[in-house]
C-alpha cells in the first residue's frame, strides 16, 4: 500500500474505541446497536455455543447475514473459515463491511490463509504474537485482534497475547538494524513489516482485543494493555441481562481509565456468562491454537 491509510485500514480506524458485538439474530443486532456497539459480528452460534455443541462450524446462513445488515446502520462483520476464500467471496458479494477469517470456525485449509489483499472488503484476523500478526498483515489484513480463548469467558489468553505483543514490540524497538533480520526469521514475519514495527513501535494496522471478554472490567483491562477496541463474543448474549451488559461494555471501553465510571457501569448487571478454566481444556479444544 502506497499510502499509510486507505479505505480498508480507514474503516478499521473508525471502529477504534468501541465494542464489536457477536449477534445471532436480528433482535440481538438491534439490542447491540441501541447499546452503542460500533459494529456487529453476524453469526449462527457464538463461540461458547460452538464449543458446547461441537461439530464443524462454518460461515453463517447468508439469509441471516443479509437480514442483520438490513436491520442496523452500523457496520456488519461476518466470519469465514481460515483459508476458505469462497466463503470470503460470498461475504464480499453480500456486502458485509468486514470479514473475520476466524479460528472460531473450523479451519478449511491446514496450510494457507486467504490472500486478503485481493479483496475489496477489509479483513480482520486473530493473532497471538507479533509474528502471526505480521504474517496476516503481509497477506493483506487491515485489522488484527488477539485470539484470546473464545467462548470461555476467561480473559487470561487475551491478556497473554496482548502482553506478548507488547514485549515483542519492545524487543524490536531496541534491536539494532543488524539484529532485525534474525528477529524477523525467529518471528516468522516479513522483514519489511518487522522494520516498520521497529521504527514506529506499533503494529502496522490497529489491534483489538478478543476472546474471553465477559465483564466491563475485562474490556477496560484490554484497553489498558494496548487494545484499541474490544470484540465481545459470547460475553453479552449469554449473560443474564444482555441489554445492560452491552451498554456497560461500551461505557467501559470509552472510560477505561476512569475507575468511578467503571464501578457505576458494573453495578447490578446480573450474572456474567459461565466461564471455563483454560487449564481444564484439552489441547484439541483450544481455538487459539488454530491458524499459524
Amino acid at each position: 500500500m502506497a499510502e499509510k491509510y486507505n479505505v480498508k485500514t480507514g474503516l478499521a480506524e473508525m471502529l477504534k474505541g468501541g465494542v464489536i458485538m457477536d449477534v445471532m439474530s436480528l433482535e440481538q443486532a438491534k439490542i447491540a446497536e441501541q447499546a452503542g456497539a460500533c459494529a456487529v459480528m453476524a453469526l449462527e452460534r457464538v463461540p461458547a455455543l460452538i464449543r458446547k455443541e461441537g461439530g464443524v462450524a462454518r460461515m453463517a446462513d447468508p439469509e441471516l447475514i443479509l437480514k442483520i445488515k438490513a436491520a442496523v446502520s452500523i457496520p456488519v462483520m461476518a466470519k469465514c473459515r481460515i483459508g476458505h476464500f469462497v466463503e470470503a467471496r460470498m461475504l464480499e458479494t453480500m456486502g458485509v463491511d468486514f470479514i473475520d477469517e476466524s479460528e472460531v470456525l473450523t479451519p478449511a485449509d491446514d496450510r494457507y490463509h486467504i490472500d486478503k489483499g485481493e479483496f475489496r472488503i477489509p479483513f480482520v484476523c486473530g493473532c497471538t504474537d507479533v509474528g502471526e500478526a505480521l504474517r496476516r498483515v503481509g497477506e493483506g489484513a487491515a485489522l488484527l485482534r488477539t485470539k484470546g480463548e473464545a467462548g470461555t469467558g476467561n480473559i487470561i489468553e487475551a491478556v497473554k497475547h496482548l502482553r506478548t505483543i507488547q514485549e515483542q514490540i519492545a524487543t524490536l524497538r531496541s534491536a539494532s538494524p543488524d539484529m532485525r533480520v534474525t528477529l524477523a526469521k525467529d518471528l516468522g514475519a516479513p522483514l519489511e513489516l518487522v522494520k516498520v514495527v521497529a521504527k514506529t513501535g506499533r503494529l502496522p494496522v490497529p489491534n483489538f482485543a478478543a476472546g474471553g471478554v465477559a465483564t466491563p472490567a475485562d474490556a477496560a483491562l484490554c484497553m489498558h494493555l494496548g487494545a484499541e477496541s474490544v470484540f465481545v463474543g459470547s460475553g453479552i448474549f449469554l449473560s443474564e441481562d444482555p441489554q445492560r451488559r452491552a451498554a456497560a461494555m461500551v461505557q467501559a471501553v470509552t472510560h477505561y481509565q476512569s475507575y468511578d465510571v467503571l464501578v457505576e457501569a458494573s453495578k447490578s448487571l446480573g450474572a456474567a456468562m459461565t466461564g471455563v478454566d483454560i487449564t481444564t481444556l484439552d489441547e484439541s479444544e483450544r481455538l487459539s491454537a488454530r491458524g499459524w
Binding site: 473508525m14 471502529l15 468501541g18 441501541q34 452503542g36 460500533c38 459494529a39 452500523i74 451498554a247 470509552t254
Partner: peptide, 13 residues
C-alpha cells in the same frame, strides 16, 4: 469520524 449512533448514545449517556 466513527459510528455516529455510538457517539450519540455516549454523548447522551
Amino acid at each position: 469520524g466513527g459510528e455516529s449512533t455510538t457517539q450519540l448514545n455516549l454523548l447522551l449517556r
